[in-house]
């Protein structure tokens, strides 16, 4: 497609609005001076300072623990749920999928507030013991990750020949073994994509974590927010840059996986056609 000058400018403007803030952020994370407006020279000192900051490193560790655990739990539950949903009747399937998709549309802030209210309510039942912290964040993250896992596993299940499990049983596999030997390997790409997606979402979640966290347990995005409220230090730039790069890499992995999947499918179809005409 050929673009005229106007549409070129338009595209450039959009890209600028999207990426200029991040570019500025990355640029100043390498700034020598303690300033967010004047660039004096290249330096890695803010990164050094970042990794010297025990508090920040601790929240980084917290974030990773939450991300790994919540995405792993969500992947297991979500995969099981997707398999269950697949075996439902037509109408109950539609209903359950609708309920599953609802949290995706729900604004984060609503989810966050609702979760907080629930946890505070439960806290009241237990006589006011502080429960906001690690467990509440974990539960919240598992919850908002679930639909993403289900959504990425579901299409893989639908592509599967419904007779595969029967074929495995026919050849001597008891039911459960047939699932692990035949169904699981074939939906694995969907499961892995779901896991990476959940991991990414968990790492950069701020809104929901904000409502369900307590003073005892902070994640990295919460820490950054707290830091900006005091005095904006350039080490925040360095931290944000690192988060941006990690999320970017994960997103690229997801996209590449999906693209190669499609390419493989196309290639197979073409070669099957060729084999057929021989």
């Amino acid at each position: 497609m050929k673009m005229n000058a106007a549409s070129k400018i338009y595209t450039a403007l959009i890209l600028a609005f999207l990426y200029l803030p991040i570019a500025v952020l990355i640029f100043f994370s390498f700034n020598e001076a303690n300033s967010t407006s004047v660039f004096t020279g290249f330096s890695l000192q803010w990164y050094r300072e970042l990794f010297a900051d025990r508090e920040t490193l601790k929240t980084l560790y917290n974030t990773l623990i939450i991300a790994v655990l919540s995405s792993a739990i969500a992947t297991v539950i979500g995969t099981a749920a997707a398999v269950g949903i697949q075996s439902l009747g037509k109408w109950s399937k539609k209903l359950v999928m609708g309920v599953t998709n609802l949290p995706l549309m729900n604004p984060d802030i609503v989810t966050g507030v609702a979760m907080m209210l629930l946890f505070v309510f439960i806290m009241g039942l237990f006589g006011g013991t502080e429960i906001l912290g690690f467990w509440t964040i974990l539960i919240a993250h598992v919850t908002f990750n679930l639909p993403y896992v289900i959504l990425s596993v579901n299409p893989k299940l639908r592509q599967l020949d419904p007779h595969l499990v029967e074929a495995a049983q026919d050849l001597g596999c008891p039911g459960r073994k047939a699932f692990f030997k035949v169904v699981l390997p074939n939906i694995m790409p969907g499961i892995v994509t779901g896991f990476i997606m959940a991991f990414t979402l968990s790492i950069d979640d701020f809104v929901i974590s904000y409502f369900v966290s307590g003073p005892s347990f902070q994640t990295l995005p919460l820490r950054i927010y707290a830091m900006t409220k005091r005095r904006v230090e350039p080490s925040i730039n360095a931290l944000s840059t690192l988060i941006f790069v990690v999320v970017l890499v994960l997103l690229i992995i997801i996209n590449v996986r999906q693209a190669t999947d499609e390419k493989k499918l196309k290639k197979n179809i073409i070669s099957a056609k060729n084999a057929g005409t021989k």
Partner: peptide, 20 residues
């Protein structure tokens, strides 16, 4: 008796080969 214990085997209509 479960299918996996029967001494019969089925060729399914669309073969149901294992894609992996």
């Amino acid at each position: 008796v479960q299918p996996y214990r029967r001494q019969v085997s089925t060729i399914f209509q669309r073969y149901a080969l294992f894609p992996h």
